[in-house]
């Protein structure tokens, strides 16, 4: 595969007159783990929905190079259907491919689900539902999986388990990941690269290490020391922009054939 799996450029999303995303650029390279962090209402879900074609952008471009699958915010079960049927519907985009609806491979990756396969999804616990949402996305046999809020409402241990799954899938199958996560530390530790989205715009981007080191990000998302935030912001923005350019070049090199 060549080139980034997700390439978003100049994306604008509006709801009526309110602008949720204002000229956003974002890329996810093949096999890359990318974090997207930002406060509530920043526009993260809007970005995800535009990428998945659920929301029609008002401007800009979304290019998918390969198949994307979504683990939607809030789990979003087909509550009346069984776990197995939920998983099977994950393969809808590949419904004409023979064997695409075989759920066995998901139970291999998420053995916890095998026990409840006949149960109605609406009756599962939150963590189990998140796993079903996960498995449903895997059923699409995606090149990139987009996770909107991995940890929402989950016990830390469950979150860690799912993060582990993601890492494994990335390592073993070369699955690219775009991870949206309130817990910025978790996200940045898992991913190599990250973006910070605020009020519909990309505020900072760079390698996870740089973002973790950035005072601004630390202050806003990691509960770090709050100094002169405004000044720190300026400084951090500068470094973030620099590193962003660097990484962009690098990823371009890496991903070109």
């Amino acid at each position: 595969m060549s080139g980034p799996v997700i390439e978003v450029s100049d994306l604008v999303v509006r709801y009526g007159t309110a602008t949720a995303l204002d000229r956003v650029d974002l890329t996810v390279g093949a096999g890359e783990l990318v974090a997207l962090i930002g406060p509530n209402g920043a526009g993260k879900s809007s970005l995800v929905n535009a990428v998945m074609g659920i929301v029609r952008p008002a401007g800009g471009r979304v290019r998918l190079n390969g198949r994307a699958a979504l683990v939607p915010e809030g789990r979003q079960m087909f509550a009346d259907l069984t776990v197995d049927d939920n998983l099977k519907l994950g393969a809808w985009r590949r419904r004409r491919v023979p064997g695409a609806r075989d759920t066995a491979r998901v139970y291999e990756v998420l053995p916890e689900l095998a026990r409840v396969r006949g149960q109605r999804a609406g009756t599962l616990s939150g963590g189990q539902q998140q796993m079903v949402a996960f498995g449903r996305a895997l059923m699409a046999d995606p090149d990139v999986i987009v996770v909107d809020e991995l940890s929402l409402g989950l016990a830390p241990k469950v979150t860690a388990g799912l993060a582990e799954h993601l890492r494994d899938l990335n390592r073993e199958r070369g699955l690219a990941v775009l991870l949206i996560e309130q817990n910025a530390r978790l996200a940045l530790e898992l991913c190599g690269r990250g973006y910070v989205l605020e009020a519909g715009r990309i505020r900072a981007q760079g390698t996870a290490a740089d973002l973790l080191a950035s005072e601004e990000v630390a202050a806003a998302y990691l509960g770090g020391p709050a100094g002169d935030v405004a000044a720190a912001k300026e400084a951090a923005m500068e470094t973030a922009k620099e590193t962003a350019k660097e990484t962009a070049k690098e990823t371009a090199k890496e991903t070109s054939p």
Binding site: L70, F78, D80, L81, D85, A140
Partner: peptide
């Protein structure tokens, strides 16, 4: 089942395509 899925959760139905 896809029809039932739309009934149960249209957003999730869109998410799986």
């Amino acid at each position: 089942k896809a029809l039932s899925a739309c009934a149960a959760n249209p957003y999730a139905a869109r998410a799986v395509g």
